[in-house]
Simulated scan of single mutants.
Amino acid sequence: MASSTDQRICFSLCLFLFLFLHLSTSTTDTPIPAPWPEQFHSVLFINRSGTLQKTDLWYDWPNGRNFNIIQYQQGVLKYDLEWNNGTSFIYTLDPFNRTCKKLHFDVGILRPNWLEGAKYLGQEYADNFLCNVWEKADFIWYHEDVLTRRPVKWIFLTSGMVSHVMTFEVGAVLEDEHWQAPVYCFSKSEPEPRLHNIMSSSLLDLEAAGGDAHGFRQTLISEW
Rank of each mutant, 00 (worst) to 15 (best):
S3M: 08
I69E: 13
N84K: 06
L103K: 02
A2L: 08
R48K: 15
L81F: 05
H41L: 09
N197W: 09
W224H: 12
Q71V: 04
L23H: 14
D56I: 08
Q74P: 03
R149Y: 04
E190T: 11
S189R: 11
A213I: 04
T25V: 14
K153Q: 15
D176T: 11
I109M: 01
S163W: 01
I46Q: 12
W141E: 08
L203Q: 12
R98E: 13
E82N: 15
W154Q: 01
E223V: 10
S42E: 03
H164Y: 10
L77G: 04
G117I: 05
V170F: 03
E223N: 15
K153D: 03
I70S: 01
F168A: 05
G86I: 00
G86K: 02
W36N: 09
G117N: 12
L157K: 04
F186M: 09
I46D: 10
C14W: 07
T92K: 09
L130A: 12
V43Y: 02
L52F: 15
Y125M: 13
H196M: 07
N63F: 00
I70D: 00
L115T: 12
S189E: 13
R65D: 00
E124S: 14
S202L: 06
R217F: 02
K153W: 00
K136C: 09
T5P: 01
S202P: 01
T25P: 01
P193W: 06
F20C: 13
S4Q: 14
A34K: 12
F45Y: 15
Y120R: 07
S26Q: 12
S163D: 06
E177V: 10
A2H: 09
